Simulated assay, not measured.
Amino acid sequence: MSNQPMMEVELYAFNSASGQFLLTPHEFDVDLDGNLYASLSLERNELALGAEAAKSALELKLPPDCDLVRHLLATSVTGETTSITLRIGRRESGDSSGSDYWWISGTRWMGRVLGVEIAEDAARIRCESAQVSLKRIGLRRLYSRKCSHVLYSSACGAAQISASSSVASTDARNVELDGGVPAVVRGGLAGGWLQTPQGARHMIVTDYGSGVELLYPVAIESGSEVLLTVGCDHSTTTCASRFNNLDNYGGFPAIPSKNPFSTGVF
């Protein structure tokens, strides 16, 4: 056996219905039983020690242009849930030749992704522990004036409104389109997305006639055919006028604005 000391690394597994991402902050890729954990600049917050570690919230910091971030932005639009498991991998010499052998020594944390925030230099992923989710009493859906359904999800039921266009040029977050924004989606793209031929989705902040402004900078080759999908501000007016979908509206616009416990009944 080799005298090489045992090495311990963290292994992150992100799983959803439409994709799987295996990552490690180790300086090299980790091949474990045929599963390749790709090396990525990945940082996390400090977790509590002992039994409380499993209940802690997990926050990750990683490059904003990686495939995982693009996937999470796309699933945030469709309402798809992504689970995350943090395991500990260990390496030791497998034979006299000194070849590496990786094995999983335990699971440190399990939960689900709550959301992702994009900045110019980094992306931050917020995750909730599975123990916290299971112990939450009642339904997770919010009681609010505006609709809480994810647009185009099964609960929403709205028919997707999209149009194709060709990219003229890109400048940081702005994408200019040949002929401008198509009339069928013009004025309604805020909160929607731009989808590239490779399937990557980029959230649209607003459209301005000749093009669209995205949430974060992108580089799309001129001449590329993209798909523009209409967004929603989750109001009753938009639900009725844009989608004709008021029967499925998930908000409660008639919630009283006066609180009888603070203002009195009369």
Rank of each mutant, 00 (worst) to 15 (best):
T75V: 10
S76I: 00
S76V: 01
T78K: 11
T78I: 01
G79L: 11
E80F: 06
S83F: 08
I84C: 13
T85M: 13
G89D: 03
R91N: 11
E92K: 14
E92Q: 14
S93K: 01
D95S: 14
D95M: 06
S97Y: 03
G98L: 06
S99C: 04
S99V: 09
W102V: 02
W102I: 02
W102N: 00
W103C: 03
W103V: 03
W103H: 14
I104Y: 07
S105H: 07
S105G: 15
G106T: 04
T107D: 13
T107N: 09
R108F: 04
M110E: 04
V113Q: 06
V116F: 04
I118L: 15
A119C: 01
E120K: 03
E120I: 03
E120M: 04
D121C: 00
A122R: 10
A122E: 04
C127L: 02
E128N: 03
S129L: 02
S129G: 07
S129I: 02
Q131P: 01
S133C: 02
K135L: 10
K135A: 14
R136E: 12
I137V: 06
R140F: 04
R140E: 10
R141H: 05
R141Q: 08
R141M: 01
R141K: 11
R145G: 02
K146P: 00
C147E: 01
C147W: 02
S148V: 01
S148W: 10
H149G: 01
L151I: 05
S153R: 07
S154P: 06
S154T: 11
A155T: 08
A155I: 03
C156N: 14
G157F: 07
I161D: 15
I161L: 15
I161K: 15
I161C: 14
I161E: 15
S162E: 13
S162K: 09
S164G: 13
S164C: 04
S165E: 03
S166Q: 10
V167C: 07
T170Y: 09
R173T: 14
R173Q: 14
N174V: 13
V175H: 05
E176Q: 12
L177F: 06
D178T: 09
G180S: 12
V181D: 14
P182L: 00
V185T: 14
R186Q: 14
R186E: 14
R186G: 13
G187M: 07
G188L: 03
A190H: 08
G191H: 10
G191A: 08
W193R: 13
